[in-house]
């Protein structure tokens, strides 16, 4: 009985998360219509005005409408995060599927390399990669940096050394069929939550990196918050709204991924 209730609750939570992500995606798609002003358009004489009817989120230090800027920033962050998450999943999934099937010594080597990368916080790894290959590499860097974060492991769970795989082997079922099983069953079951988790992780890494000044020149939420560092003590709205948008994006992604491991029980 209890397990059914829990799973129902988690279903609702996940549904809410996906709904939120969908709404955010809609906002991103329509950002050019919803926004009052095109990205970066400054209104002279209206610097740092508090939220009002004309500017619901206020204006920033050079007079840009924060509402429009937040929408554009959300679009920039969202697009980058989705791309980075896709890279992380493809890399992580490929790695997991391959590593589980490599001969043992080789698998150990690959795993060791991956383990060393995973010993550095993803943020530092992303910063380093961006520094090495330039700001245009930011998306790939974030994807690479978040790949060891656990997407590897969720595909790894598809263990070819499990008991049922052993029995299948014993009755001459070829490895390709087992791989097909993994793809049809696991992909199907974990894919949604893996995507959402990757999205949450990639968003955090991308926006933090661009907050620290490592990122493509497009003005995303991280960069907006970094820029408002000068003004936000006196004009809170310059940082609060972009930050809220960022939190909302991450929160929705995390909810869509399902509650944390501990909660899933």
């Amino acid at each position: 009985m209890r397990t059914r209730e829990v799973s129902l609750a988690s279903l609702i939570v996940r549904g809410l998360g996906w709904l939120g992500l969908g709404l955010l995606a809609l906002a991103v798609l329509l950002s050019d219509f919803l926004a009052h002003a095109p990205a970066g358009a400054a209104i002279a004489g209206a610097e740092l005005s508090p939220p009002s009817q004309a500017h619901p989120f206020g204006t920033d230090i050079i007079g840009r409408d924060v509402f429009s800027e937040t929408l554009h920033g959300l679009a920039a962050t969202g697009v980058k995060a989705v791309a980075a998450a896709a890279i992380a999943i493809v890399l992580g999934g490929l790695f997991g599927a391959v590593a589980a099937r490599l001969p043992r010594p080789l698998a150990l080597l690959v795993r060791g390399f991956w383990g060393v990368l995973a010993a550095v916080p993803p943020l530092l790894l992303a910063i380093l990669l961006i520094g090495l290959f330039g700001g245009g590499f930011a998306i790939v860097a974030a994807g690479l940096a978040t790949a060891p974060l656990g997407f590897v492991r969720s595909f790894d769970a598809v263990d070819v050394r499990s008991r049922h795989a052993e029995y299948a082997h014993a009755t001459g079922i070829p490895g390709m069929i087992l791989l097909k099983r993994d793809l049809t069953y696991d992909f199907h079951n974990v894919f949604g939550s893996v995507v959402a988790r990757a999205l949450a992780a990639a968003t955090i890494v991308i926006s933090t990196a661009s907050f620290l000044g490592f990122g493509a020149p497009t003005r995303d939420l991280g960069l907006m918050i970094a820029a408002s560092k000068i003004s936000f003590f006196s004009a809170w709205w310059t940082a609060a709204f972009p930050a809220l948008a960022l939190i909302l994006l991450i929160l929705c992604a995390r909810l869509a991924a399902g509650l944390d491991e501990g909660e899933r029980a």
Partner: peptide
Amino acid sequence: IQIITATPVFVSGLA
């Protein structure tokens, strides 16, 4: 908890 952990460190630092 989800909301708290969804906040990136730089945002919570500034807050």
